[in-house]
């Protein structure tokens, strides 16, 4: 994959750089809640990065900021050389809930991005390709309420991909699926990632998923969310979920998250220090 990363030019709008990003929310009693504070991260073009961390650490907020759905209070978000100001078809977003439009058939859902940009007439053929890609040809005319959870999520994936986004943001997209469907979908996403060189940022609660999928794992600390530590996953692809290195990395991350979740600052620091030593 490093080959692919090296080939991609830096300015083609598929690398991300976040520097010193802060985002607040006002809670019901009027006080301000820090969702993110001083968050900095660079994602290379074509890279697959996972964000893990406890609930409420601002991971989803971060994806919304990258997507352009929200604005930060301070700091800069850039895609390629351009600052992120608005949502764009260049940056696709997939939620845990498939959020298919219930009044549209599967086909209409998948082609929504083409219709929205007024290019359906030129690219109608692609809709069939994407239906085939996610294995839903037979369900093209079904409505979302007639689909299983996995099928709905595959349709949402096709809908997010039909615009050929340079960056795909995945907010726990597989979290609601059963174990088998999830593993299948992970391979599916990896296959698409490899085939297209799309930059992907994946928010997940599942450590196995993070290790299985990503080039780097970013551990995010809670309240306010910021980068705790970045772990390079130097395992060869395709990865084996039960290989020794995989399980070892998994144990180390679990160890780290235990401290990051409830331990003292020194304990977190020392665990993080052990990691940095090993990684460098």
């Amino acid at each position: 994959m490093s080959q692919l990363n090296g080939d991609a030019t830096i300015d083609d709008g598929s690398s991300l750089s976040l520097s010193d990003v802060a985002k607040f929310y006002s809670s019901a009693d009027g006080s301000r809640v820090h969702a993110l504070h001083g968050f900095s991260l660079s994602v290379a073009a074509g890279e697959m990065v996972s964000l893990i961390g406890p609930s409420g650490c601002g991971k989803s907020t971060l994806l919304r900021l990258i997507a352009g759905l929200d604005r930060p209070e301070s700091g800069a978000l850039r895609v390629g050389d351009a600052p992120i100001t608005d949502p764009s078809a260049e940056r696709g977003l997939m939620f845990q809930d498939p959020n298919l439009f219930p009044w549209m058939s599967v086909r209409r859902n998948i082609q929504a991005g083409l219709v929205a940009r007024g290019v359906l007439h030129r690219r109608r053929r692609e809709v069939d390709e994407f239906l085939r890609l996610v294995g839903l040809e037979a369900f093209a005319d079904h409505y979302p309420h007639q689909l299983s959870g996995g099928m709905a999520q595959r349709a949402a994936l096709a809908r997010a991909l039909i615009n050929h986004p340079k960056v795909l943001l995945l907010d726990e997209p597989l979290g609601a699926l059963d174990q088998f469907t999830r593993m299948k979908m992970q391979d599916e996403v990896l296959r698409l990632w490899r085939a297209r060189g799309t930059t992907m940022v994946l928010v997940t609660h599942d450590i196995d998923e993070a290790i299985y999928m990503s080039d780097r794992i970013v551990v995010v600390s809670p309240r306010p969310g910021r980068v705790e530590i970045v772990i390079d996953v130097a395992l060869e692809r395709p990865r084996l979920r039960n290989s020794q290195p995989f399980l070892k990395l998994r144990a180390e991350i679990l160890d780290l998250l235990h401290f990051a979740g409830g331990g003292s600052d020194e304990a977190v620091e020392s665990a993080a220090g052990r990691f940095r030593g090993r990684q460098s």
């Binding site: 919304r64 997507a67 352009g68 759905l69 949502p87 764009s88 078809a89 940056r91 696709g92 977003l93 939620f95 809930d97 959020n99 439009f101 929504a112 991005g113 219709v115 929205a116 940009r117 809908r159 997010a160 615009n163």
Partner: peptide, 16 residues
């Protein structure tokens, strides 16, 4: 709001 958010990330303008 989630429907509107999805549509915006798909490149939808106000009319859509």
């Amino acid at each position: 709001v989630s429907y509107l958010d999805v549509a915006r990330t798909l490149g939808a303008g106000r009319r859509y």
